[in-house]
Amino acid sequence: MLGRPATTTQITHLQRLWLYVLVGLVLAFLIIPCLIVIPMSFSGSQYLEFPPRSWSLQWYQAYLGSPEWRAATFVSFRVALLTTLLATVLGTIAAYGIARVRGLLPAAARGVFMLPMLVPLILVAIGCFFVYARLGLNGTILGLVLAHTVLALPFVVIAVSSGLASYDMNQERVAQSLGASRPWAFLTVTLPQIKLSVMSGALFAFVTSFDEVVVALFISSGENATLTRLMFANIRDQIDPTVAAISSLLIGLSVLLLVGSQLLRRGGERR
């Protein structure tokens, strides 16, 4: 019986074969660059090569043993965490305001919050560089955090807005009538119910900052150079497989974050 059409009009798996092939190609196209990097990182050679002719862990040792790489990694984490904190708080407040206020203003505000996603990154970077030159923020953690927060805000606003779309604002009114001040009503009633959206917004913010390289190329330097910036410089100057080792670690981190967020979402839905 298997595989036989129930009616003459039903499309069989065979007739849909081209769709499966197409999907397989798309998935492969997405995954292969990641998969190529991983074996390259275990190369025993001095250069990036695929497939590697010999195997070793030397590039992981090179990465972990280098004070320069470690410092850059620390900078990246610090910037990403601060960006996550700032962008999540600001983005959540913005999304809340957009959801709560009626009229044209919220629509306009939403448009402005989306701008960093639409404007070419290179323009943001150049803009930041010239403004920071006057303010003395180039090469500082604060400057990086502010620039990355701007880039991360759209993701937080989108994520939290989608959470608020299905949230009943009357609950907050009830909480207020029951004796909660408005901020307290938000913290005890609204926030617990949109926390998954806020968390996924925070995750996006973290990744946006951690992966960012264009703006970092312009405004981060010296002891405050980010990991991505250093990787970029490394590829340009010497091209050794250390970059592949770091990339592999970053892929691992991303997969962990993604799986973690999915598990969280599952748990949230089961409740």
């Binding site: 009943d168 009357n170 009538s177 029951l178």
Partner: peptide, 27 residues
């Protein structure tokens, strides 16, 4: 609103779904 000491009931109940019945009433 929170200093008026009013009880309010809405058409769509507006119970807090992240709390138990007892916690809702205890809020």
């Amino acid at each position: 609103p929170h200093r008026r000491n009013l009880g309010m009931v809405f058409q769509n109940y507006a119970l807090f779904p992240h709390m138990s019945v007892r916690s809702n009433v205890g809020y």
